[in-house]
Nucleic acid binder design. Structure first.
Length: 1025
RNA sequence: GGGUGUAUAGCUCAGUGGUAGAGCACUUCGUUGACAUCGAAGGGGUCACAAGUUCGAACCUUGUUACGCCCA
């Protein structure tokens, strides 16, 4: 069967992949010949996602490791799966609903909407899996996991319940990053801070009671530069609309300008409230006026100040980022706020219920409200102004006009990474992981080296982040995800105990429902994995209420509103029929879901079957290596470390390999707007998966920048063709019909001995490289070996043996070449699985297994024949020298020329005799003779222990040959200068390692020998002309 | 502002103390019985700058400059 001219990736890849799958080649434990395990968790791609170059890169590296270990006989598992990706998926499905004119999410309601999500997932959620197969990834697809699978879901809830029970998860009103588009809290890692053009406005807050003070500015020497009597304090803000919720004005305690008025009250413009001037370290006296308005509910810095100074934090906006329109009328709210400012005690719940947005602004979008606030403050004469002179065009009269001061100033603004809208700091009820309590083991694991991060710089970043870790907000106001397993009930406890003993009368009922103001009271809540499990806790909760409520049946309702209505109805009914069996106590489940990273934080144990003590868990956990982008070191890697250690008290993996973002060839981020996106599937279509994979491997230096260029991919496609054609050459020379793959060659010819040693060297290099995650070294080492050694030299030098050798030489060369090519296929397989598997099938009639399960070699230095090594290097050097001289002398490439041996030592003599046919063929020599002295007009070829000549009299230009020799002499002189300099330095000889000194001596001797020969040649030429 | 990197051939990048490397690009030559997706030969570098450690520095230390990323 004659081989085609090159590998047809387009038609072969799918067939080969199918064969692997059919053979179960990727199943956990396939090809295992030892107990050692090797396990990689695929970082679960977003279920909405499709394969991009980043995945292609990331998955290539994992596949290389997995295939390598599998061939080595490890019990291997590469665990695939998908992430449910809360916001992204919910958004995708909502878009789909809108595009297909279906009812919206809110119209559908939670349950129906989730059905739609599942439908969508079944239909489109697997795209990336099929795309991944085109890349050749060898994952155990039978184990494909999903973070919303029932088993995984149960594991996530179990962890929540356990961590809650241990006090590691808590609920509280905290300032969070609120995304007004998705109407959910997001973590600070999901916020992108971008500098945008902003403005700074300056307002006057007047002192209460018409008080005044002496405002004095001084320069560095303490000399007074400005002095005036003021009845206001000047504040600066980039967000004027938040002033409606101010709780105070803060000044730095060291700021002398405001020292006289600290503790006094100021009028809050547009509001009927007085707020105090407080002293706090936060304001920078040199920035703006030095006085900062404090809005605890809408700014992270202000929040800290408000907590320190015990200021009320009034929430101004609703979930969409509009000014609040709920609650009691402004007058009622502000009246209560005045009482609070005067010292009345108010709880968190009550303060949050107060809507201090004046009627005028209620319901306005936050940005419209900003404009309105500015206009109103300016109209009230409370904007800080500067006088601007203008001249009336008609009258020529000069006017002095007071214009508000507005500074143009770049400000850092937070944006939601998914929604792109400005994030609003918002005071809301959220669930938090108290990360400070679980961070230590995660730090220790890396510090002690139990888990190693590559590159090392990743460890520093990891420490820095974990040492300064913030509580992790894990609740998200979404529907798609793991709903928080917490149920709430109405608080029936009562400040003043009900007067009745035992039974409930109508007066008590009234108190419970109306006077108790249940709506504004805190709820009671319990956490458990299911409603059934939480029922017990609520029975305990109502045990101390009057009979018969304490025996009420616990039922689940949708929300608090329904709970109050249900309870009222039940109590009303009881008042009528006195039938205690109909009494119910309604509870409702927390509507929020968990942060997607909370669930993917459990990926290693969750996919292996935890909390069941499965065989897979016992066998493969802790896993070996996590390969992922360094951008999710915090999002995911650090959290997995904390979570596995907190839950099962073990590290999730022993090595973390971090890589950078894949960029375009100029180093720019790929983006649709820039139009520089490379689609990996298009690359696979055009150049084959192997070329893309080889490129990925070659780019993967530790910590390296990943710039993907199509030119490079093309180069590696050519490499595949080269390998193909070398195999074709072997096939044409009957290698595969004669070769026995189960027999190790034991050749006699130097060439064959040499290439076996070279193969052994590259085997050691490749294993060392992959063991150190130096994928680029492995890829480039194989490239250099296959192309530079096997194709350029071994195949070329084998031609004289095949064409002119005797049968014994031909036979051993066939056996050697077959073996060498097999080793090439085996070692290249992890990087280029398709073409190697194809060649494996085409070249071996007696293969025991597919290449995917071939045994990885372990041979090493024992296969290196130092004598053969020396001899071949001498031959190759000689051929190089002759070729070089020919080319520089413009000897026509096709012309065969004679060679003379002027002098030669015993080693050279043997080497020349052993390889004469090869030298003649590759250097295009016709006729070798020994001469006593160099013929006139010959080109001198210097080799170790020998001098050759090319008698080209008449063919060569003497001046050109002189120039060539001189150039070589110059280069030699420079090299010898360096070597002599070192060797003449007594300190070098004394301090440098022996072998370094010996090597330098040898080098110098060799150069001196060559130098002498070339100088002699130059002298001879000088005699001619 | 804090953290953390990078700077080596025209381009993209390797190179953890011992004579500066690869691929691509470039120049010249070549339809030699695997391959023109190829072969042969060649040109091309003050290893950002400065100081230090060392017998010896692209590599270690310090500083400077420029650029990148992460977090504020």
């Amino acid at each position: 069967m004659a081989m085609e001219k090159n590998f047809d990736a387009g038609t072969s890849e799918a067939r080969i992949y199918e064969a692997w799958e059919k053979a179960g080649a990727f199943k956990a434990g396939a090809n295992a010949t030892r107990d050692d395990t090797f396990c990689i968790m695929l970082p679960p791609p977003n279920v909405t996602g499709s394969l991009h170059v980043g995945h292609a890169f990331n998955h290539t590296l994992m596949d290389i490791l997995t295939r390598w270990k599998r061939m080595q006989g490890f019990d291997t598992l590469w665990q695939p799966g998908l992430d449910h990706a809360g916001i992204a998926t919910q958004l995708q499905v909502e878009k789909m609903l809108a595009a297909t004119n279906q009812p919206s999410r809110r119209e559908l309601g939670r349950e129906k909407f989730l059905e739609k999500v599942w439908e969508w997932k079944e239909k489109f959620g697997g795209t990336i899996v099929e795309q991944d197969k085109r890349l050749g990834t060898s994952m155990d697809w039978d184990r494909l996991a999903f973070t919303m699978d029932e088993q995984f879901h149960d594991a996530v809830l179990k962890v929540f319940v356990d961590m809650y029970a241990k006090g590691l998860i808590t609920r509280g009103k905290r300032l969070v990053n609120w995304d007004p588009h998705f109407e959910t809290a997001i973590s600070d890692l999901e916020v992108e801070n971008t500098e945008v053009a902003g403005h700074m406005w300056h307002f006057k807050y007047k002192l209460a009671g018409g008080e005044t003070y002496e405002y004095i500015e001084k320069d560095e020497d303490g000399a007074v530069t400005f002095r005036e009597t003021r009845d206001y304090i000047s504040i600066a803000t980039t967000r004027p609309e938040t002033m409606l919720g101010d709780g105070a004005v803060a000044v730095n305690p060291k700021d002398a300008r405001y020292a006289p008025i600290v503790g006094k009250m100021v009028h809050l413009p547009l509001c009927d409230r007085l707020i105090p001037i407080v002293s706090d370290e936060y304001p920078d006296p040199d920035f703006g006026s030095g006085a900062v308005k404090i809005t605890g509910a809408h700014d992270f810095n202000d929040y800290q100040v408000a907590k320190r100074c015990n200021l009320p934090m009034y929430r101004l906006m609703d979930t969409k980022g509009a000014m609040r329109a709920d609650g009691l009328p402004y007058e009622d709210c502000v009246a209560r706020a005045r009482e609070i400012a005067a010292g009345a005690v108010a709880g968190e719940m009550e303060i949050d219920s107060l809507n201090l947005v004046p009627e005028k602004y209620r319901g306005m979008d936050r940005f419209d409200a900003r404009a309105a606030v500015i206009a109103d403050i300016t109209a009230a004469g409370l904007a800080v102004t500067t006088l601007v002179k203008s001249i009336d065009e008609d009258t020529g009269a000069e006017h002095m006009e007071a214009v508000p001061v507005v500074d143009n100033k770049p400000v850092m603004q937070p944006f939601g990474d998914r929604s792109g809208v400005v994030i609003e700091p918002m005071l809301t009820d959220q669930w938090f992981v108290d990360t400070a309590k679980i961070v230590q083991p995660a730090l220790d694991a890396v510090r002690s080296g139990r888990t190693k991060i590559i590159p090392e710089s990743g460890e520093k970043v990891y420490y820095h982040w974990l040492e300064n870790i913030e509580p992790w907000c894990i609740s998200r106001q979404l529907w798609w995800g793991h709903q928080i397993p917490v149920w709430y009930g109405l608080d029936l406890g009562y400040e003043q105990p009900l007067e009745t003993e035992g039974d409930l009368d109508e007066v008590d009922l009234h108190k419970l429902l109306i006077e108790g103001g249940m709506m504004h009271r805190k709820d009671v809540y319990h956490c458990a994995a299911s409603f059934e499990a939480v029922t017990e806790a609520f029975k305990g909760e109502i045990a101390d209420t009057p009979t018969p409520i304490n025996h009420a049946r616990i039922i689940e309702v949708a929300d608090k509103q329904e709970a109050m209505e249900t309870l009222a109805a039940a109590l009303g009914q009881y008042a009528v029929d006195q039938d205690p069996t109909k009494l119910v106590y309604p509870v409702w489940r927390d509507a929020d879901v968990l942060d997607t990273w909370f669930s993917s934080g459990l990926w290693p144990i969750g996919t292996l079957g935890w909390p069941q003590d499965t065989d897979a868990l016992k066998k493969y956990f802790p896993t070996n290596v996590l390969v992922t982008g360094q951008d999710i070191l915090f999002f995911w890697v650090a959290r997995m470390m904390m979570m596995q250690l907190a839950v099962v008290d073990d590290i999730p993996f022993d090595t973390v390999y971090l890589h950078q973002l894949v960029r375009d060839e100029k180093g720019k981020k790929m983006s649709k707007t820039t139009g520089n996106v490379i689609d990996p599937l298009e690359i696979v279509d055009e150049y084959g998966a192997d070329a893309l994979r080889m490129t990925n491997a070659a780019m993967a230096s530790i910590g390296g920048v990943l710039k993907l260029s199509v030119e490079r991919i093309k180069g590696y496609r050519n490499f595949g063709t080269k390998l193909w054609n070398a195999t074709k050459f072997a096939e044409m020379n009957e290698v595969f019909s004669q070769y026995d793959p189960s027999v190790m060659p034991t050749p006699t010819a130097t060439l064959n001995k040499w290439i076996i040693g070279e193969t052994a060297k590259v085997r050691m290099d490749v294993d060392a490289a992959l063991g150190a995650y130096r994928f680029n070294d492995a890829a480039l080492g194989l490239y250099a070996f296959v192309w530079g050694k096997v194709c350029d030299w071994y195949v070329e030098l084998s031609k004289p043996l095949f064409y002119d050798g005797d049968e014994a030489i031909k036979a051993e060369t066939r056996q050697t070449m077959g073996w060498v090519l097999d080793q090439c296929l085996i070692m290249l397989h992890p990087i280029m699985p398709f073409i190697t598997e194809e060649l494996w099938a085409m070249t071996g009639v007696t293969r025991r297994k597919m290449l995917v399960h071939a045994d990885w070699p372990s041979f090493g230095t024992e296969l290196i024949d130092t004598h053969a090594d020396r001899e071949m290097n001498w031959v190759i050097g000689l051929i190089d020298s002759i070729r070089s001289a020919r080319a520089e002398m413009h000897v026509p490439a096709g012309l065969k020329v004679p060679l003379v041996i002027v002098d030669i030592d015993a080693n050279g003599d043997a080497a020349f005799a052993n390889n004469k046919a090869m030298i003649e063929k590759l250097a295009r020599i016709d006729g070798v003779t020994r001469v006593a002295q160099m013929p006139k007009g010959a080109v001198t070829i210097a080799a170790e222990g020998a001098t050759f000549g090319l008698p080209l009299a008449g063919l060569i230009d003497v001046a050109e040959e002189k120039a060539r020799l001189q150039k070589s002499l110059d280069k030699l002189a420079k090299e010898m200068g360096g070597l002599k300099g070192r060797l003449n330095n007594p300190n070098f000889v004394a301090s440098a390692p022996e072998e370094v000194v010996a090597e330098a001596r040898e080098n110098l001797a060799a150069r001196q020998e060559e130098d002498a020969k070339l100088k002699a040649a130059l002298t001879r030429l000088a005699q001619i002309g």
